[in-house]
Design a protein around this nucleic acid. Structure first.
Lengths: 210, 210
DNA sequence: AGCACGGGCTGATCGAAAGCAACTCAGATG
DNA sequence: CATCTGAGTTGCTTTCGATCAGCCCGTGCT
């Protein structure tokens, strides 16, 4: 039996998938693409985008406000869907930028729907995953709205850990985190300076090591 | 031809629906339910919930933090789906509370999927609507993270207006808003006192009237 | 070597929003 | 009728986090 992709690995945590499901799933990963870090993959307002399943590397989705401020909505890690909403929506309402070199499989929407028709269990699993993503955005919203900088940061780092664990990217001692403090700041709705202080606090409390 | 439900009205703004689509849609609104204001309709952690389509009244979805703070994730208005994620997720991850007396139609998920199979255009429209809801949560996140209290409040009130317009609940002069300043505060991640000040500012700027 | 650059780190100052307290007013409620 | 409650309003004080400014350090470039 072959190695599971991070995507299959994640879905398996929700629903038991048969070998047939897994091969159907594999067929989705046909056209593999590579992207370099720092160059936007999708641009706000752009039409006719495709969706991707992330195989390797980290990506972030963000919005830019008229005043230049940036808010990172979410980070995507291996196994995560990418730009699905932009496709349904017909035009992207946010930017997507690789923060490390990235490998991703382009997914044709019709292929996905075909796969759903063939194996309903797969459809369930993917919907589960989508719901989970949405729930995470909601949790993120709650954090920014009602948690202070310290709680918010700690919570976010833990959540990232939980997500990475699902795809086997966590070791006994921690996980490899390519995020700069600037990115964390834009994700958490803080300034980079303050993120730095908060991280120091967490370290001093013994809750965090680099 | 009969009156369109708010739901049909909203979907029609996205996709042209045939009479057949509309009757299929109507069949979903079978078991109508009434709820009183202030009593939770869905409770965090509760399992086996149903989904609803809101016909009349306002509802809010929120989360409570361990420290007692509340963050309102979204308000639902007539025509909006309710608790769809809780169903896919099998167990509710947030509370839903009517803020006015509410009429809603219970939707059985299998009915919905049947309807989708029958008229694909309907499926497209519903997915469109779901994407739009998700996009609104994201926009909300951005607002809380990167807009100041004034911008945030103004933006949110405008967005509410745009949503209400889609279902015909806006007049020349404005819309009927049953939200208390406490609720606005919990939605915007502010204190009620501060919301009050911000609203006063907006009034003084001539951007808002009660 | 020299230098530019990005990321991380820290101190000092400032301001937006929170917190607290008090008061009004309109409806309930008894 | 008195009173109680909840929403809205305002003044004053406090605090959290932003902003500004500068520093260190590793890397890549010429």
């Amino acid at each position: 039996m072959m190695d599971k992709s991070p995507f299959a690995r994640k879905l398996s945590a929700f629903v038991a998938l048969s070998d047939e499901d897994l091969t159907t799933l594999d067929r989705l990963h046909q056209r593999r693409r590579n992207f370099v870090a720092g160059v936007d993959l999708v641009h706000q307002g752009q039409a006719g985008q495709s969706a991707y399943i992330l195989a390797k590397g980290w990506v972030c989705s963000y919005k830019i406000l008229p005043n230049g401020a940036r808010q990172i909505v979410d980070f995507q890690i291996p196994g995560d869907f990418l730009g699905l909403r932009s496709v349904l929506f017909r035009t992207a309402d946010h930017n997507i930028e690789p923060i490390t070199p990235v490998e991703a499989s382009e997914v044709i929407v019709t292929d996905l729907l075909d796969a759903f028709a063939r194996t309903p269990r797969l459809a369930t699993a993917v919907l589960w995953a989508a719901s989970r993503d949405e729930a995470m955005v909601v949790e993120h919203l709650v954090g920014i709205g009602r948690r202070n900088a310290l709680e918010r940061t700690a919570h976010y780092l833990l959540e990232l850990g939980a997500r990475l664990k699902l795809v086997g990217l966590v070791t006994k001692t921690g996980y490899d985190c390519p995020l700069s403090q600037y990115m964390l700041a834009d994700a958490l709705g803080l300034s980079a300076v303050h993120v730095n202080r908060v991280l120091r606090q967490l370290r001093e409390m013994g809750l965090l090591t680099f």
